[in-house]
Every structure is written in structure tokens, then in C-alpha cells.
């Protein structure tokens, strides 16, 4: 956590120790604190940091690493514009500014003793990976664990190594689908939502966590509701423009909520009245 004496908008340089190219436009950075920190960096799955590229700007990026390994801070970024492109051009040994962690987290406490359904699309798997790490580290505390993941093409699938490992386990059910298949693809084709229809969870004792494009989240929620899941058992992660992450700049407002501090993870019943409105 940020020491209360430090000015909240001031970034701290961390050093890039490893870069992994995930897909054509997506990469993962491993970082270590440049100066020896007094205490290890702690975060909850679902939280994010503001990442600063020298001279270019800041972007909110979820923490995608294992919360049990607080010495190595991990982020997965997709290149979509100015800051993320500059971030993608950084090299090992160079520095990146970090401030955080910010925001709410996935309901891993509430999920204890329940079936857990994770629905993710594209880069939306990044903020859910820490949740999966934690769920699997405490596997016996949960009932079924189901991961549904959709990517554009087989080449766009993130975290292949982890997905393979999880797939090989008997205590996790992993379903992957792609919008467009390539020649060697033998899996599902189509959007992720039909997978929700078939997912084997118990509707009275399950919790769902969703992150992906808004349109995908809308369909996923609809499908889960049809399957009988209550609104208060569904959690979604919302994306908004963020300039400060500390509730001062106003950019991330989503109805009454500041997405940076009340979100990005929201319990669905709290935002149901906003979720299907456009331009909120």
C-alpha cells in the first residue's frame, strides 16, 4: 500500500526484469522494486496499478501475477494506443513508474464453499489470473472451479502455459473458445456466452466473476441470470477512463460510483440499473 505520507499522485520507478510476448499485440512485464522497499508489495486479485512510461503517460493496468509472490509484480498489457505502445517498446532493465494498488477485488472470501464460474474475454483474463492462482492455492475451500475464456483467434489466447497446466488438473474445468478458428484449432468456435449455458454449476451455490468487453459481459450476465444465478452472486469488472485512480479527477464516474475506488470489480446488483444503459 501507498504510505500515507507520500503524495498520492507520485509514481515510483520499478525495474523490468522479464518481458514475455503473449500474443502479437500483448505482452507481460515482470517488475521488481528499484529501491529496496520496506515491506513487500501486497495486492488483492482484481486490483490494478497506474503504470507510467517515462515522458509518455500513465495507464491503469490490472495486476496479473500471483498474489502469493509479492516480490515480483506482473502486468499483462495489450497495445491499443499511445501509452501501451510505448510500454511495449520498453526493454529489460529499463524502469516503469508504479503507483497502487487501487480498487476493489474479486470476491474470493464470499466464494468459499461455492462453485466458482469465471467468464473472461480477451485481455479480460489478465485481472482474473491472480484470482485463479489464489483459488487453486486454496483449492479445497471451493467447490467446482470453471473457467470460460474467449479469444479472437487461437493466436490471441493468453497464458497458454497456465491454461495447459490448469486444463491438466482434474479439479478445474477449462473451456476455451475462439471467434475465428485457424486450421489447427480443434476447440470451440464462437462467442463465450453459449459456454455459460453448458457450464456445470449449482445455481443456488455459485459465484460468477466476469471480465471482458462490455458487450460480452452483458450477454454473460444475461445467460447466468437465465440459468438462475442471483444478481448478488455475479461480479463484473468495469473499464472507464482513469486519470488519477484516487477519486480526484472525476473521469471514471459510473453513475454514483468512482470506478477507481468503488470498482473496478462491482457486485452486479449494485450496478444493474446502469449496466444496460448506454453512455453512462
Amino acid at each position: 500500500m501507498i504510505a500515507p505520507t507520500q503524495a498520492p499522485m507520485v509514481t515510483t520507478p520499478w525495474t523490468i526484469t522479464r518481458i514475455e510476448k503473449e500474443t502479437e499485440d500483448t505482452f507481460t512485464l515482470d517488475l521488481k522494486a528499484s529501491e529496496v522497499e520496506a515491506s513487500p508489495y501486497r495486492f488483492e486479485p482484481g486490483q490494478f496499478n497506474m503504470l507510467y512510461v517515462f515522458g509518455v503517460g500513465e495507464a491503469p493496468i490490472s495486476i496479473s501475477g500471483d498474489p502469493a509472490k509479492p516480490k515480483r509484480l506482473r502486468h499483462t498489457t495489450r497495445i491499443v494506443g499511445t501509452v501501451t505502445r510505448a510500454m511495449g517498446a520498453l526493454r529489460k532493465g529499463e524502469s516503469i513508474g508504479i503507483r497502487g494498488p487501487y480498487g476493489s477485488s474479486w470476491p474470493l472470501e464470499q466464494a468459499k464453499g461455492k462453485d466458482v464460474i469465471i467468464v473472461s474475454g480477451g485481455i479480460g483474463l489478465a485481472p482474473l489470473r491472480p484470482a485463479l492462482h489464489k483459488l487453486l492455492a486454496h483449492r479445497q475451500q471451493y467447490r467446482r472451479i470453471i473457467l470460460l475464456y474467449g479469444a479472437r483467434t487461437p493466436e490471441d489466447i493468453l497464458y497458454n502455459k497456465h491454461l495447459e497446466k490448469w486444463r491438466a488438473r482434474f479439479d478445474v474445468e477449462v473451456y476455451i473458445t475462439v471467434d475465428r478458428a485457424t486450421r489447427n484449432w480443434r476447440g470451440n468456435v464462437g462467442v463465450v456466452t453459449p459456454l455459460v449455458k453448458r457450464a456445470p454449476f449449482h445455481r443456488d451455490n455459485a459465484i460468477a466473476m466476469i471480465c471482458g468487453p462490455e458487450i460480452m459481459m452483458r450477454y454473460a450476465v444475461q445467460e447466468l441470470r437465465t440459468r438462475g444465478l442471483q444478481a448478488e452472486d455475479i461480479y463484473v469488472s468495469i473499464e472507464r477512463n482513469m486519470k488519477c485512480a484516487i477519486g480526484h479527477c472525476g473521469h471514471c464516474q459510473y453513475g454514483p460510483a468512482f470506478t477507481c475506488k468503488d470498482g473496478p470489480v462491482f457486485r452486479y446488483d449494485k450496478i444493474e440499473h446502469l449496466f444496460n444503459l448506454v453512455e453512462i
Binding site: A7, V10, P13, T15, G93, E94, S95
Partner: peptide
């Protein structure tokens, strides 16, 4: 101004809060 930053050798930088 919120802060200034200065590049250092080897791709690092330091931050000087206002």
C-alpha cells in the same frame, strides 16, 4: 505540476515530487 522526473543511466529514472 505534480512532479518532475529525470532519466538515469541504464534506462532508469528518478522522481522528484513537487
Amino acid at each position: 505540476r505534480l512532479w518532475k522526473a529525470q532519466r538515469t543511466e541504464g534506462g532508469g529514472f528518478t522522481v522528484d515530487p513537487e
